[in-house]
Design a protein around this nucleic acid. Structure first.
Lengths: 215, 215
DNA sequence: CTTGATGGTTGATAAATATCAAGCGATGTC
DNA sequence: GACATCGCTTGATATTTATCAACCATCAAG
């Protein structure tokens, strides 16, 4: 975007550091600020009728919630910090103003929105087409760390949150993990290790049309 | 958008009429055309591992699939006609060209994308937070025709497709309908009538943050 | 050290949902 | 009019998932 637009955005913006477990926004609230995670971790969640579910977990450089800001509509999700988190807050009105005047910015917003949209669609396919064990198996395959030769990784979130994200109860996640033992998955605390990727893939049947975060 | 941009878009575009049950696009294909429904009905669906689910049903003036066109990425969903359907096909390259040069068009694309995004998020909440009977109850409440005093409506799609959209089997939809009889829902063929909206709402607990299509 | 809180696990059981097989009723074809 | 097809429904049963209660390990506070 132009320097002028950038200045305009930055003028009213501020950076704030939040402690863990702070609810940053609540679904239904009006979109006063566009949030950008600089450091730490944020959970997007939604509630209905005394039930709650995790919609996504965000790390550094993720934005939320862009669509509500652009549309000037109420948030559809709530957000809370999972750990000490630093966040940029951009007043929604400034974002809309710059969006209306700076074309390069507007196009960047589209790129970001299109990515978010495709992410949610993939998530929806995952939920609709797979059962809980298949979802867990694919989650593991998606998170395998290329750093250690694709042999394992450390769960970035608590298991109860992972369970909520995968659409199951913590009890069921426990059992699902045990079931995956037959497919070469070993879980010790937050450490996940696999011994036979091919075997796990035979069960998980991953596809880029659901599991590739980039595409 | 400008007349020039419009001309550019229209130049390579064409309108085509398709018979029922034609697969217009398949997930995984590259996004050659942006589609706009003029008349008729189109089902967006997705498949994995010999399972299939309905993601959405589109009527006149809906577009698909915008995000893939903008990002020049493969379709995440397939689409088929449910009846005789007239569709505008806009070459993706033209859409991207006009998107890059016409600012008003780019902003309209954002508005459309933001709406699509929010629709999918609401859909995801519906699936994650409600069981099948609650989903059906809310579906009925959403579709109550204001025309006939909110007393009923005609199902726009076959029941087996409704079942797939609501994330259940046709057998289960049948039983769910019978269960809703206790809450004043009468279904005769495709005709749905309710006798006690308040009663149904006590079960369905609708909320604009999931069920309001506009917001 | 105790103590209490918390996240996780396990087993028993219940509820929700899917599967399979059969049958029904409307529709269209020959 | 006989017949096949198709969408839908029903009943019986199996599978998946949730719930409830108990217990375990860890960790921090007193």
């Amino acid at each position: 975007m132009s320097d002028e637009s950038f200045g305009r955005l930055v003028r009213g913006a501020y950076v704030q550091t939040f402690p863990p477990a702070i609810e940053l926004i609540s679904e239904g609230d009006s979109a006063d600020f566009l949030h950008i995670v600089l450091d730490g971790m944020v959970e997007l969640f939604a509630s209905w009728n005394r039930r709650e579910t995790t919609m996504a977990t965000l790390g550094p450089l993720a934005t939320f919630i862009l669509a509500a800001t652009i549309r000037d509509a109420p948030y559809l999700m709530s957000a809370r910090t999972l750990e000490k988190t630093r966040i940029v807050l951009l007043p929604s009105e400034d974002v809309r103003t710059v969006f209306a005047t700076d074309n390069a910015f507007a196009r960047s917003v589209v790129a970001e929105l299109a990515t978010c949209y495709r992410t949610v669609v993939k998530n929806s396919k995952d939920l609709r087409l797979r059962n809980s064990i298949e979802r867990l198996a694919n989650y593991i395959l998606r998170h395998l760390d290329t750093a250690d030769g694709g042999k394992g990784f450390v769960l970035p979130i608590e298991k109860r949150r992972l369970a909520a994200y995968l659409g199951m109860t913590p009890e069921n996640l426990s059992r699902a993990i045990r079931t995956l033992g037959q497919y070469g998955v070993e879980v010790d605390g937050n450490r996940v290790t696999i011994t036979d990727r091919a075997d796990l893939e035979r069960l998980a049947k991953p596809t880029p049309l659901i599991d590739d975060p980039g595409h």
